[in-house]
Nucleic acid binder design. Structure first.
Lengths: 217, 217
DNA sequence: CGCGTCACCTAACGGGCGTTTGGTTTGTCC
DNA sequence: GGACAAACCAAACGCCCGTTAGGTGACGCG
């Protein structure tokens, strides 16, 4: 609509390229369509139509439909990776670390709603190599949260009777499920969500007993 | 393998029919394939092949592929409904009610892993009427948990500073996400999962402060 | 014995799929 | 002004999809 001649290729300065426009546009629109309709329910002609071109013309920019999915999922995985693994070194107490990890995790989901949705929904349709890559990667995320809980139990900041595996499951449920309900335009920032979730998880939903007496007041 | 002549039609007693075998077999296999591969990645010929028949022969028993999906999703929704809505009348304190609702919710997921997976994954591909039906139904489930939290705050059994919407989101995250990791053959029963989750959620992950003093000992 | 019915097969239908091919336009650089 | 590449179109490729139509054998019932 606005400008039909999309990219001025910057003729004199190609070394540090300004952006790669068309290929990235395709990936972006594919993220949107795959997340809205699903991978198999999106045809290459649908995708091309949204970009104002013909189905076959896509193949001047990309190699195949599979490669598109792999690109989207890998990119999402790298986002999670980059957000969480810088935390491994930090020496915060476990509750603070859990709070911070949840914040970063939810922010990645919130900032990449479309590719995160594709990541959680369509990873089963990846080619075998990409499939096992993603599966292994998810195991390391599980382990990250599990180790975090174990550390907290050891240092005494978390309840000693916790099952680390189940605790990690619970935390992951909270942060991952966000892709189903969070809407970036709404009133809550990713930080708001993470703070509320972490508060509820760490200190519990139950009202504190009425201070003094152990039974009736 | 075992018996190839499947159903003796019980000629003298058709009034209260014994079972409807073939149609149900198709629904069961479809649940499995849809949950494993996704709706659009499962062809009617795949489905028929698993039942030892030809693609076209399915249409002697079912009307269409859409109808299959609708049947599976509706059945799953009815399971959740039946499990949760008998709780509306009970006059338990909110924490107990949350614990019980989580237990029932997880049990439905665990006892119907395949149709639950289809329910959570493929509802976007329903026909328009079934789509809005499922969407509305999910809203009532959200409201159920939200009201439960509101009741708990009113009666003083839950923290007064909770956001009911977000608290319901957290509970739903835990019980719904179970479909991604729970395996019925494993060492944990649905009750084990629910008890652990409810304990963690209600009383919190953090270790209790060192008993006596309000500040440093 | 003939009739109906059930469960299934074979074959085909129109259409959409991912992808390839060859050609046309457009714009830049020498 | 001629070479060149990028971006795209139009058309076709073989294949698979959901679904339909007509036919066939087995079986129970009057």
């Amino acid at each position: 609509m606005t400008d039909s001649s999309s990219p001025p290729p910057a003729p004199a300065a190609p070394p540090a390229a300004p952006t790669k426009p068309r290929r990235e546009q395709i990936h972006e629109v594919a993220s949107r369509l795959f997340s809205e309709r699903g991978y198999h329910a999106t045809s290459m002609r649908d995708l091309a139509g949204q970009l104002g071109m013909q189905g076959g013309s896509l193949y001047a920019h990309i190699a195949s439909k599979d490669e598109l999915l792999i690109g989207i999922v890998d990119r999402a995985a790298r986002q999670f990776d980059g957000a969480l693994f810088t935390l491994r070194g930090d020496s915060l107490p476990a509750p603070e670390k859990i709070r911070e990890a949840m914040h970063r995790h939810i922010r990645v989901v919130a900032d990449n709603m479309e590719s995160a949705t594709v990541f959680f929904h369509e990873w089963k349709h990846l080619s075998p190599e990409a499939y096992t890559r993603v599966t292994n990667w998810r195991d390391t995320i599980d382990a990250f949260y599990r180790d975090l809980v174990i550390q907290g139990i050891k240092e005494g900041s978390l309840r000693p009777d916790l099952d680390p595996k189940m605790t990690a499951n619970l935390i992951l449920s909270a942060v991952n499920w966000a892709y189903t309900w969070y809407r970036p335009g709404g009133s809550m920032t990713p930080r708001d969500v993470a703070e509320q979730y972490a508060d509820m998880l760490l200190t519990g939903l139950q009202a504190a007993p009425v201070s003094a007496g152990p039974e009736r007041p």
